[in-house]
């Protein structure tokens, strides 16, 4: 690793750390005059403290809005290459890309293409998803022939049956409600807590300059 590369790594790590530290401080402490003991002028100080975080976040929003351009560039790059190799579907993709843009430009943003093409297609895909899910759920015991697999299948069947509007199945609804309210809700919270915890730790790693992309 030569000096230039090292310098680049050090610089990018520094930028990440500085921006991260400013944003975290500003977002965490800003906009709350109470932390300045509500002294005269603390409103202004709180606003000033919140400013860098706000500015940085707005920049991020702009970057995100523009990111779709990168996506489209990649899409074209990949699929033009595939068309050159004789892939028909990539050709269809590029053709429909062109048609959609032409449609939008010539018809002043008429959304009927969305209603007539995209909605039905994606709805059909959602229906296909149902078939996939059922097929997958019917094979759970094939992969996990243990008590957890059994529990999973039992809960799936119970929840499905309870959602069927048949009076004969009405007693199941009380079970389903309990399941949803107690174990499922507890599991969901635990899941969220775990993700939140991991998010804090990962964020910390990025802020402390340990992320792979600064280290080369």
């Amino acid at each position: 690793m030569n000096f230039g590369q090292r310098l680049g790594i050090a610089l990018s790590a520094f930028v990440a750390f500085a921006v991260g530290a400013i944003a975290v401080t500003s977002l965490l402490l800003g906009d709350n005059p109470a932390i300045f003991n509500n002294q005269p002028g603390s409103e202004r100080a709180a606003e000033l403290l919140a400013l860098p975080g706000d500015v940085l976040l707005r920049l991020v929003v702009i970057v995100i809005s523009l990111s779709v351009v990168i996506g489209i560039a990649n899409l074209l790059y990949v699929h033009v290459g595939r068309v050159a190799r004789g892939k028909v579907y990539s050709g269809a993709l590029l053709a429909s890309f062109g048609v959609a843009i032409f449609w939008h430009l010539t018809r002043q943003g008429d959304p009927s293409l969305l209603e007539a093409v995209q909605l039905p297609i994606e709805s059909s895909l959602a229906a296909l998803l149902f078939v996939s899910l059922v097929a997958g759920a019917s094979r759970v015991m094939q992969k996990r022939a243990d008590v957890w697999g059994l529990l999973f299948v039992a809960v799936v069947v119970l929840v499905l049956l309870a959602s069927v509007p048949l009076a004969e199945l009405a007693p199941l609804r009380a079970w389903r409600d309990w399941l949803m309210r107690v174990p499922v809700s507890a599991g969901a919270r635990a899941f969220l807590l775990g993700i939140a915890m991991a998010t804090v730790v990962t964020g910390q790693r990025v802020l402390l300059g340990q992320d792979r992309s600064y280290r080369g």
Partner: peptide, 27 residues
């Protein structure tokens, strides 16, 4: 709604049947 009802019943059948076969095979 009727389609949803029938679909749910059919999928319950398929899921139970498929898992029963898998469980028996594993056993």
């Amino acid at each position: 709604l009727e389609a949803m009802t029938l679909g749910a019943l059919a999928s319950v059948l398929i899921i139970v049947f498929g898992n029963l076969v898998s469980a028996l095979r594993a056993f």
